[in-house]
């Protein structure tokens, strides 16, 4: 009987030795991947997510095409937006960001749908006006969607802490939807410190501090900006504007 001879025994031995080596190696690779992709350890694909996805999507995700699955699910998010089905949109967006946590685009737009589109829609239409519960219900519901937006942006920041976009979006949310200029300034400041951040963000932080009534902090911010460079010629950093803010705050 040659079929399972000496060589096959050696093959089994090689596989056993390799099995003992590969598991610790794969564990380390998985840990490093999780840190790069999610900033923390997350399961690669939770059972709940698999239950929520259709068969085709699950197959695509399991075949290593999570990005493609996320893209096609995002088309459903857009449809839900057009039909103003906010709860469905939230559930779909959750699946998309779980499938593709590395994409700023999905976090950014999912948060925007919640904090702007869904919350403004709630402000206008929710509650039964005849029963006198309109304004109260509208505020409660609108705030619910804004909180959903904040939650998405905060989770997105934890997943992709190195990109400025989500800090900027969170700052704009605090500024435009909640008029919380202090928090907005904080996130503009954080965004401006990230690599590749647009230069206007450092000015936005100063303006937000002024709006928050933090004159001393705003003055310190503008002076720090001015002192961050010795060249104050024309350019994207708009030194003229910074100088104007410093003078104005010095006058008052």
């Amino acid at each position: 009987m040659k079929r399972w001879g000496r060589h096959s025994g050696m093959a089994v031995l090689v596989l056993l030795v390799w099995a003992g080596l590969k598991v610790p190696w794969e564990l380390r690779l998985a840990r490093e991947r999780s840190e790069i992709m999610y900033g923390a350890e997350l399961p690669p694909m939770s059972m709940e997510l698999r239950d929520s996805l259709g068969q085709g999507m699950t197959l695509a995700a399991l075949g290593g095409f999570r990005g493609v699955a996320a893209n096609f699910l995002w088309l459903s998010v857009t449809t839900a937006w057009e039909e103003q089905q906010w709860t469905r949109l939230r559930a779909l967006a959750e699946m998309v960001v779980l499938l593709s946590a590395e994409g700023v685009f999905f976090w950014e737009n999912a948060g925007w749908h919640m904090a702007y589109n869904a919350s403004v829609s709630a402000e206008r239409f929710s509650g039964d006006a005849e029963r006198g519960e309109g304004p109260r219900m509208r505020n409660v519901e609108s705030m619910h969607w804004i909180k959903q937006g904040i939650e998405l942006y905060e989770r997105g920041i934890r997943a992709i802490p190195e990109k400025p976009k989500l800090y900027e979006m969170l700052a704009l949310l605090y500024q435009q939807r909640l008029q919380d200029h202090e928090k907005a300034a904080h996130y503009f400041e954080l965004a401006s410190q990230k690599e590749g951040a647009p230069v206007y963000l450092e000015r936005f932080a100063g303006f937000a501090l002024e709006k928050a009534g933090e004159r001393e902090k705003a003055y310190a911010h503008w002076v720090k900006l001015w002192q961050s460079s010795e060249e104050h010629g024309p350019g994207p950093r708009r030194w003229g504007m910074i100088e104007e803010r410093i003078r104005k705050l010095e006058k008052n």
């Binding site: 099995a19 490093e32 991947r33 290593g64 700023v104 685009f105």
Partner: peptide, 25 residues
Amino acid sequence: FLIPDFQAYNLIDEIIAGNAPPWAG
């Protein structure tokens, strides 16, 4: 023990999303 971890190659998604994972990984 027997099956390769193909999930490890999901770093590809990270790169496609425009992030720059270190070459060392």
